[in-house]
Amino acid sequence: MDEMREYFDIERLFAEYCAALDEGELERWPEFFVEDGLYQMIARENHAFGYPIPLLLLDSRGMMQDRVYSLRNANIYQAHRYRHAQSGVRITAREGETLRVSSSYIVVQTLNEGVSEVYQAGSYYDLLVRTADGLRFKERVCVYDTSRVATLLATPV
């Protein structure tokens, strides 16, 4: 029963996370992380060879809020909509109050012309922690297979 409950809580967190990004509610996105949480995107080709350079590395909720503020007010990019499909959720380890969880994702991007294309495929490697507000990310590391980013990456996946 406890394990079913765990999976249920994880799925609920993931569903809210995807909905926030897919509906363009970027301001909600940092709230899925604890205050000193880590969000990182790294190409599979770097990860596989042990090279550390990230595409994005935000190691506090403040940095995530800066990213959102910058996307809203500073950066120039095409209007776009993400659509997440996430699957294969697995709990890979339990460490005290935290859960290690991995899953696969595909993000389809639609631009104003009305064409949808697979923008990115990859794996999420998460470290989740229970808080008073429910499960939150202590870490979300996105290891993306689609090493050739189409034009640019503005919005986190």
């Binding site: 995107m41 990230p54 595409l55 590395l57 935000l58 190691d59 910058s70 120039i76 640019l152 503005a154």
Partner: peptide, 26 residues
């Protein structure tokens, strides 16, 4: 080294001060 990795946020396909370059060329 940690600072270099963090400042990779500035430049690259998602960089704060570089993402617009390919947007402009397109």
């Amino acid at each position: 080294r940690r600072l270099r990795l963090k400042q990779a946020n500035l430049a690259g396909p998602a960089g704060y001060i570089s993402m617009e370059d390919t947007e402009a060329t397109e």
